[in-house]
């Protein structure tokens, strides 16, 4: 039972991070019908930037396999904020300079260009910061945990859940009650009508991408915290958040969050209980489980839990 509770919390933490990643996809998809394949590299970029901003200058060797990072040594909160800001700006720049010129061209082209940009971004990160794993620091004791009903709950998981919850609530409130939120909803429902009503569609799209980029930075940072270090493969987690997006329904933010939480818990439970049962094929089976779930959904319920069914019109 204690073991189960521990897995549950760990799964919820993973699910919350998947949800943050998935939210980044959904926000952009709803605004511009583009699936941003560069999102994973934005995660890496945000996390690596955070490490660089936060690490004190010239720290020594930090444990096994880590390299010292010659960073700026900014306070943790400031570094987090700056990392969100810069990653958001990068995302907005991608929208402005790569995707804006493609308006009116097939969506397929826009998707492919995000793939290529992700590739370029990854190479840039590799060039500037190298491809070694870098230790990520936290203001709380990153190894620490406390006991609840016999289960050990670690601070890192709780912090991830808390951060994700704060972002979801503030995003939900923003989209529902603020002027910007209303404009964003207007654009996602009909761009041409929005233009006709005098909404600066381009600027709002840029802001949407900015928000998605900031989310990417936060999810990247907390994913890094989960593993105690940041390396270039962090972005591949975004590939594992795809199933959450599909299972939740491609255009539903709430659906993506719920599906991500479910998939996160399922993944950790599978790693804990099922992998060992599968014999030779169980090794890392939990890594592909979300895809299996996704394929089942696509066969039986292609528009996901909450997605809108597409209607064909001539």
């Amino acid at each position: 039972m204690q073991e189960f509770l521990q897995y549950l919390i760990s799964g919820l933490a993973l699910g919350a991070l998947y949800a943050l990643v998935a939210l980044g996809f959904v926000v952009i998809y709803r605004a511009s019908q583009v699936f941003n394949f560069a999102h994973g590299e934005l995660l890496t970029f945000g996390a690596v930037l955070m490490v660089w901003l936060n690490s004190p200058p010239q720290v020594g060797e930090l444990g096994l396999g880590s390299v010292s990072v010659d960073g700026l040594g900014l306070p943790w909160g400031v570094a987090l904020f700056l990392s969100m800001l810069v990653t958001g700006a990068v995302a907005a720049a991608i929208e402005r300079f790569a995707l804006r010129p493609l308006v009116g061209r097939p969506i397929f082209v826009a998707i492919i260009i995000t793939l290529f940009i992700g590739f370029i971004l990854r190479t840039f990160v590799m060039l500037i910061w190298g491809n070694d794993a870098m230790p990520i620091l936290t203001p709380w004791d990153s190894m620490g945990s406390f006991e609840l009903a016999g289960a050990m709950l670690d601070y890192n998981s709780l912090a991830a859940i808390a951060a994700a919850a704060v972002l979801f609530v503030s995003f939900g409130l923003m989209i529902r009650f603020t002027r910007l939120g209303i404009l964003m909803r207007a654009i996602s429902s009909d761009q041409e009508t929005s233009l006709a009503l005098g909404i600066p569609v381009g600027r709002i799209l840029g802001l949407t991408w900015f928000i998605a980029g900031a989310f990417a930075a936060v999810s990247g940072i907390f994913l890094g915290v989960r593993d105690y270090s940041v390396d270039l493969n962090l972005g591949f987690v975004a590939l594992r958040a795809f199933p959450a997006v599909i299972v939740g329904g491609l255009d539903s933010a709430l659906g993506a969050v719920i599906a991500a939480l479910i998939l996160g818990v399922l993944e950790v439970l599978t790693a804990g209980y099922v992998n060992a049962e599968l014999g030779a094929f169980g090794k890392n089976f939990h890594m592909v489980l979300p895809y299996v779930v996704m394929i089942f959904f696509l066969v039986f319920k292609p528009y996901g839990l909450f997605g809108t069914k597409k209607v064909e019109r001539l």
């Binding site: 699936f35 997006v245 599909i246 996704m294 394929i295």
Partner: peptide, 13 residues
């Protein structure tokens, strides 16, 4: 059953 995006994601899977 799927088009465009969905297919791209399924094939990643």
């Amino acid at each position: 059953r799927l088009e465009g995006l969905y297919l791209a994601i399924v094939t990643i899977g």
